[in-house]
Nucleic acid binder design. Structure first.
Lengths: 103, 103
DNA sequence: GCCATTGTTCGATTACGGTCAAACTATTTC
DNA sequence: GAAATAGTTTGACCGTAATCGAACAATGGC
């Protein structure tokens, strides 16, 4: 099988700061990004997240994060993992992610 | 006359990151903040800003920035100056403003 | 005092985004 | 193949926010 790179994320060179900021400017998405701070891939399974929203809402937030350039999705069978694009973001917007994770 | 501290800005200790991010997550406001990067106070005079919006809209954005904690307003006669709260923001959210100004 | 200047506020309109419920897709398991 | 699991998509609803135009307020200059 192919090393599954489904669900397209934008090239980091195309990512605009204002769009990243908009993606971060929501309580749930900001919290998700903080959970992803360790750099590892986390399953999207809604039970594992501490939010009181439906899984369709969570799915919407995951999509917003991915399309903004903040995360990538790794498909593994029927499980989808989400991962912060930390290294790329650090190169494109130095200091931004660290300051957000710290705040 | 009093050294005019009209137009209240929130205490920086009360400022939440997500609210700062929301204020920054607009093209016009982000551009305003970048113009304020030099740290000096700029008049709100709409003719001096390169935006194709009405002055009432610009006034709304200035208000949003101030209420989010990003700026302060200095009243000087009939001219209002706006200033980035750089030092306070640097202490509250280290690295955030610098990364936004750089991006 | 009158007028121009500078900016705010108000009301209306419109667009966008977060949320839910339900239907749908894909994958694994039995 | 059927059922269960993991997640997405769609459509509707609703609150919020961006925008405009007009009215309003405050100040400075004459």
């Amino acid at each position: 099988m192919e090393p599954s790179q489904s669900y397209p994320s934008p090239d980091m060179s195309d990512v605009q700061l204002v769009d990243v900021l908009r993606a971060l400017a929501d309580p749930i998405r900001l919290e998700i990004v903080r959970h992803l701070a360790d750099g590892t891939a986390h399953p999207k399974t809604s039970d594992l997240w501490p939010f009181d929203v439906q899984k369709s809402t969570l799915s919407h937030h995951f999509k917003t994060l991915r399309e903004s350039g903040l995360t990538r999705t790794i498909v593994n069978g029927r499980q989808h993992d989400i991962q912060l694009r930390k290294a790329e973001l650090d190169e494109r917007f130095p200091g931004l992610i660290d300051s957000v994770l710290r705040g």
